[in-house]
């Protein structure tokens, strides 16, 4: 089978979705345009800025660098899903607390990327947090507040689990 379009079935934020997609449509255009999930943003569209970060089968990926057609059969989580599940509620609170966003364009990508770092619940230095977030660009905050928010969340989670 080969064509310029294909019907795909995937799980998005826990719900099964079946749609006809163009082969050339990348995942985030599909999520935004077809499903109305506008939390994932498109910045550079060539894998540098990280605003399009989504979770594919549990791992963070660049939503602009994979085709929607490649997500056939996969499970996708967007910032909407992570918000609804409460997984990043503490991180979001700390983002607000620390003023870790201004325009908010990069925030969904930051949250999803940070969520992957936080999932391990292992101690990290600020330097390690910075390095992990280095593929997500923010043009407002200068990153300091973002690293604060992630560090605070990690500390709180480690305290809670100890």
């Amino acid at each position: 089978m080969s064509d310029e379009t294909k019907t795909i079935t995937l799980t998005v934020n826990g719900e099964s979705v079946t749609k006809l997609v163009d082969a050339r449509t990348h995942l985030v255009d599909f999520l935004r345009g077809e499903l109305g999930l506008t939390g994932s943003h498109l910045g550079c569209e060539h894998g540098i800025c990280g605003a399009c970060s989504v979770r594919l089968d549990g791992d963070v990926v660049r939503g602009c660098l994979m085709l929607a057609i490649q997500a056939d059969g996969a499970s996708i989580e967007t910032v909407e899903g992570l918000t609804a599940s409460g997984e990043v509620a503490d991180l979001q609170e700390n983002f607000v607390e620390r003023d870790a966003l201004q325009c908010g364009f990069c925030t969904p990508g930051m949250l999803i990327t940070a969520a992957e770092l936080l999932r391990e619940a292992a101690p990290k230095t600020r330097e390690e947090i910075r390095e992990f977030l280095s593929g997500n660009y923010c043009r407002c905050t200068g990153y300091h507040a973002i690293v604060d928010a992630v560090e605070t969340t990690l500390t709180q989670r480690l305290e809670k689990s100890s």
């Binding site: 089978m1 064509d3 310029e4 294909k6 082969a23 050339r24 449509t25 057609i69």
Partner: peptide
């Protein structure tokens, strides 16, 4: 930008 049109085959 977006990719130009192409055919897609998965095997």
């Amino acid at each position: 930008m977006k990719a130009a049109k192409f055919d897609y085959t998965k095997t």
